[in-house]
Simulated assay, not measured.
Amino acid sequence: MIGAKRVLAVIPARGGSKGVPRKNIRELAGKPLLAWSIEAARQSKYIDRVILSSDDPEIIETAQAWGCEVPFIRPAELAADDTPGIDPILHALSQVPGYDYVILLQPTSPLRTAEDIDACVEQLLRAAAPCCVTVTEPAKSPYWMYTLQANNAMQPLIQQELVTRRQDLPKAFALNGAVYVAEAEWLKRTKSFLTEETVAHIMPSDRSFDIDTELDLFLAEALLKQRVAQR
Score class of each variant (00 low, 15 high):
residue 222 A to P: 00
residue 154 M to K: 14
residue 106 Q to C: 08
residue 178 A to N: 14
residue 220 A to D: 04
residue 207 R to E: 01
residue 193 F to Y: 15
residue 87 D to E: 13
residue 46 Y to E: 02
residue 36 W to T: 06
residue 30 G to A: 14
residue 75 P to V: 00
residue 181 V to Y: 06
residue 215 L to I: 12
residue 202 I to W: 05
residue 129 A to V: 04
residue 151 N to A: 06
residue 92 A to P: 03
residue 191 K to V: 01
residue 114 A to N: 12
residue 71 P to V: 01
residue 215 L to Q: 14
residue 180 Y to R: 14
residue 137 E to M: 12
residue 147 T to M: 14
residue 71 P to Y: 00
residue 139 A to T: 04
residue 143 Y to V: 09
residue 33 L to P: 05
residue 110 P to D: 14
residue 83 T to M: 01
residue 67 G to Y: 06
residue 2 I to L: 09
residue 173 F to V: 10
residue 189 R to M: 03
residue 125 L to W: 09
residue 51 I to T: 02
residue 23 K to S: 15
residue 50 V to H: 10
residue 34 L to P: 09
residue 112 R to A: 13
residue 38 I to A: 08
residue 124 L to H: 08
residue 85 G to H: 14
residue 225 K to P: 02
residue 37 S to R: 14
residue 62 T to A: 14
residue 115 E to L: 11
residue 172 A to P: 06
residue 127 A to W: 04
residue 17 S to G: 04
residue 230 Q to P: 09
residue 136 T to W: 04
residue 54 S to G: 03
residue 194 L to H: 09
residue 10 V to I: 00
residue 2 I to R: 11
residue 114 A to R: 08
residue 21 P to L: 07
residue 212 D to A: 13
residue 197 E to M: 04
residue 208 S to R: 01
residue 41 A to L: 00
residue 183 E to Y: 12
residue 89 I to Y: 00
residue 118 D to M: 06
residue 219 L to M: 10
residue 93 L to W: 11
residue 167 Q to L: 05
residue 151 N to P: 01
residue 107 P to N: 01
residue 96 V to F: 00
residue 121 V to P: 05
residue 19 G to R: 08
residue 169 L to Q: 15
residue 114 A to P: 05
residue 144 W to V: 09
residue 164 T to K: 08
residue 62 T to K: 11
residue 64 Q to N: 08
residue 216 D to G: 07
residue 27 E to I: 15
residue 140 K to R: 03
residue 163 V to S: 08
residue 107 P to R: 03
residue 109 S to D: 05
residue 225 K to L: 12
residue 11 I to C: 00
residue 150 A to M: 07
residue 160 Q to N: 10
residue 52 L to T: 01
residue 33 L to I: 11
residue 209 F to M: 12
residue 35 A to I: 14
residue 159 Q to F: 07
residue 182 A to F: 09
residue 223 L to T: 03
residue 24 N to K: 05
residue 128 A to K: 15
residue 49 R to T: 05
residue 141 S to C: 06
residue 196 E to R: 10
residue 166 R to L: 14
residue 48 D to A: 12
residue 39 E to R: 08
residue 146 Y to F: 15
residue 166 R to M: 15
residue 82 D to L: 07
residue 186 W to N: 07
residue 3 G to D: 07
residue 60 I to Q: 00
residue 101 Y to W: 02
residue 179 V to T: 01
residue 190 T to L: 05
residue 102 V to K: 11
residue 79 A to V: 03
residue 38 I to T: 09
residue 194 L to N: 03
residue 196 E to L: 14
residue 75 P to L: 00
residue 85 G to S: 11
residue 69 E to I: 02
residue 106 Q to R: 01
residue 114 A to H: 13
residue 94 S to N: 12
residue 170 P to R: 04
residue 53 S to A: 06
residue 21 P to M: 07
residue 26 R to D: 03
residue 229 A to K: 06
residue 122 E to S: 13
residue 218 F to E: 11
residue 72 F to T: 00
residue 227 R to K: 09
residue 110 P to F: 15
residue 66 W to L: 13
residue 102 V to I: 09
residue 199 V to E: 12
residue 146 Y to C: 12
residue 132 C to V: 03
residue 126 R to K: 13
residue 212 D to V: 07
residue 71 P to R: 02
residue 211 I to C: 09
residue 22 R to C: 10
residue 215 L to M: 07
residue 64 Q to E: 15
residue 16 G to E: 15
residue 104 L to T: 13
residue 5 K to S: 13
residue 54 S to Y: 00
residue 10 V to N: 02
residue 146 Y to R: 15
residue 218 F to H: 12
